[in-house]
Computed example of a mutant assay.
Amino acid sequence: MEEDNASAPPDRAHVVGTKSWIAYFGTLVLAALLFFGLLPVAFMWNEIAAGVVFIVSALVVGYRLLLLRSVQLYYDDVGVWTYSGVLPWKKGVSGVKWRDMDEATFEPGFWSWVTGSYTVRIGHRYTKGGEIVLTNIGRGKAAVTTLNACQQELLRTNAIE
Rank of each mutant, 00 (worst) to 15 (best):
41 V>H: 05
50 A>Y: 07
27 T>A: 15
96 V>G: 12
103 E>N: 08
81 W>G: 05
70 S>A: 04
57 S>I: 05
17 G>K: 06
97 K>P: 03
56 V>M: 06
75 Y>T: 03
40 P>V: 13
41 V>I: 15
55 I>G: 04
70 S>H: 04
118 Y>R: 00
79 G>D: 09
31 A>K: 07
54 F>C: 11
68 L>Y: 06
125 R>F: 01
37 G>F: 10
39 L>I: 11
109 G>P: 04
116 G>D: 05
56 V>H: 01
12 R>S: 14
23 A>M: 12
85 G>E: 03
38 L>D: 02
44 M>L: 13
90 K>S: 13
85 G>Y: 03
112 S>E: 10
83 Y>C: 07
40 P>K: 12
71 V>W: 03
52 V>G: 01
27 T>E: 13
116 G>C: 05
126 Y>E: 13
37 G>S: 09
42 A>L: 11
29 V>W: 12
120 V>S: 08
12 R>I: 07
106 F>R: 01
95 G>P: 04
37 G>T: 12
101 M>G: 05
111 W>M: 15
88 P>N: 06
114 V>E: 00
94 S>M: 05
66 L>Y: 03
97 K>D: 00
102 D>T: 00
74 Y>M: 12
118 Y>N: 00
85 G>T: 02
27 T>W: 09
29 V>H: 05
36 F>T: 10
120 V>G: 09
40 P>Y: 14
102 D>M: 03
27 T>D: 08
124 H>W: 10
124 H>R: 10
114 V>L: 15
75 Y>R: 02
61 V>H: 11
22 I>Y: 10
116 G>F: 00
28 L>T: 07
51 G>W: 02
74 Y>V: 14
100 D>T: 00
105 T>Q: 06
32 A>R: 01
49 A>T: 03
34 L>H: 05
37 G>W: 09
52 V>R: 04
102 D>S: 14
48 I>R: 01
34 L>G: 07
119 T>V: 13
115 T>F: 04
108 P>S: 13
83 Y>M: 13
126 Y>N: 14
18 T>D: 04
87 L>R: 10
72 Q>I: 02
115 T>G: 04
105 T>A: 10
116 G>K: 01
52 V>Q: 04
117 S>T: 01
42 A>V: 07
127 T>D: 15
59 L>G: 09
84 S>P: 03
98 W>F: 10
42 A>N: 08
61 V>C: 11
21 W>K: 13
52 V>F: 09
51 G>P: 01
33 L>Y: 09
73 L>H: 07
54 F>D: 03
125 R>M: 14
69 R>H: 13
51 G>V: 02
124 H>Q: 11
30 L>Q: 12
97 K>V: 03
94 S>N: 10
41 V>M: 15
79 G>T: 07
60 V>C: 06
25 F>I: 13
117 S>H: 00
79 G>E: 08
68 L>R: 08
51 G>F: 01
128 K>W: 02
21 W>F: 15
19 K>M: 15
94 S>G: 02
46 N>C: 01
98 W>H: 06
31 A>C: 10
70 S>R: 06
105 T>C: 00
16 V>R: 09
93 V>F: 04
